[in-house]
Amino acid sequence: MKLRSIVVEDDILARKMLEHLCVKHESLEHLQSFESAEDALVFLETINVDLIWLDVEMGELNGFDLLKRLANPPSVIMTTSSSAYAFEAYQHDIVDYILKPINLDRFNSAVTKVMSLERHNPKENETADNDIFIKSDKKHIRLAIDDITYVENLSDYVKIYTKSNVHIVHATMKSLGEKLGDAFFRVHRSFLVNLNKVKDVDDNNLIAGGREIPISRRTKSEFLEKLNILK
Rank of each mutant, 00 (worst) to 15 (best):
E88C: 09
H92R: 08
I98F: 01
L99V: 15
L99P: 14
P101A: 09
P101K: 07
I102T: 04
N103L: 08
L104Y: 09
R106K: 02
F107L: 04
K113W: 03
K113I: 02
E118C: 08
R119Q: 15
N121W: 08
N121K: 13
A128N: 15
A128Y: 12
A128M: 13
D131I: 08
K135R: 12
S136G: 10
K139E: 13
R142G: 09
R142Y: 08
D146T: 06
D147Q: 06
E152P: 01
N153M: 02
S155K: 14
D156L: 11
D156C: 11
I160V: 13
Y161G: 10
Y161C: 13
N165L: 10
V166L: 03
H167P: 12
H170S: 07
T172A: 06
S175T: 12
K179G: 03
G181C: 05
A183N: 15
F185H: 00
R189Q: 14
R189G: 08
K197L: 10
V198I: 12
K199W: 12
D200K: 15
V201T: 09
D203T: 10
N205H: 14
N205R: 12
G209V: 06
R211M: 07
R211C: 05
R217A: 14
R218P: 09
T219N: 14
S221F: 11
